[in-house]
Amino acid sequence: MLVDEVDGGPVGDRQGHGGPDMAGTADPAVLVECWFSVLSRKALTNTSFTSVAELETRIDCWVSHWNDNPEPFVWTKPADEILDKVARGRATLGRITKSATHH
């Protein structure tokens, strides 16, 4: 389980996850998703493994390198733009869901 370092509550208890909050920090769940995305793209894409042990070795090696040379996650859009896009997406989803469930 992920714990929000700001309020100490489980991340799952928070409303969704988006970009940086007002303090400029990102939701820990988003950072975890970003990290796994980087792992997938840089260490696991276009490769195959003959065993689970080989896969684990590859991941361990990549994690070791990442820990020695971490790359910060940088938000390239202002939080307002991200939140506006989330609101538009939720509105669209609400319309789609409503039309699909009301016959």
Rank of each mutant, 00 (worst) to 15 (best):
N46L: 09
L83V: 00
D7L: 09
E71S: 10
R88H: 10
D80H: 08
K77N: 12
G16H: 02
W62Q: 03
P78V: 05
D7Y: 11
H17R: 05
W35Y: 09
P28A: 04
T76P: 11
E81K: 01
P78I: 04
V30F: 15
D68K: 10
P20T: 11
L2F: 11
G16W: 01
T50Y: 10
R41T: 01
D60E: 11
K42Q: 15
W66M: 09
H103T: 05
T25N: 09
E33V: 09
W66F: 11
D68G: 10
E71Y: 04
D27N: 10
A91P: 01
T45V: 01
V6E: 14
A100Y: 12
I96H: 06
T97I: 07
V6W: 14
K98H: 15
T25G: 05
A87Q: 07
M1S: 13
V6C: 14
S99T: 14
F36I: 00
S51I: 03
T47K: 15
S99F: 12
F49Q: 06
E71N: 09
D68V: 02
D21Q: 08
Q15R: 10
T25D: 05
T76R: 13
T97Y: 07
S37G: 11
D68E: 15
V6P: 03
V86E: 04
L93T: 14
M1H: 11
E56W: 09
P20K: 05
H102C: 12
K42A: 14
V6K: 14
D80G: 00
G18M: 04
H102D: 13
A91R: 03
H102R: 10
K77W: 15
G94K: 11
H65D: 13
L2H: 06
T76W: 15
N46C: 12
N67T: 05
H102I: 10
V38Q: 03
N69K: 15
F73M: 05
G89F: 07
D13G: 14
G12S: 12
I96R: 10
E54L: 08
Q15P: 10
D60I: 05
T92Y: 12
V30K: 13
H103E: 05
S37T: 06
K42R: 15
K42G: 09
V63E: 03
A79N: 01
D80T: 02
R95Q: 13
P72W: 09
R95T: 08
L31N: 02
P72C: 03
A53F: 11
A43Y: 05
R14M: 12
W75R: 08
T25C: 09
P28W: 01
M22R: 12
A91D: 06
W62P: 00
G12R: 05
H103F: 15
L83H: 00
G18P: 00
D68A: 11
T97G: 06
L93I: 12
W75G: 07
G19P: 02
V38T: 01
E33Y: 12
P70C: 04
A23V: 04
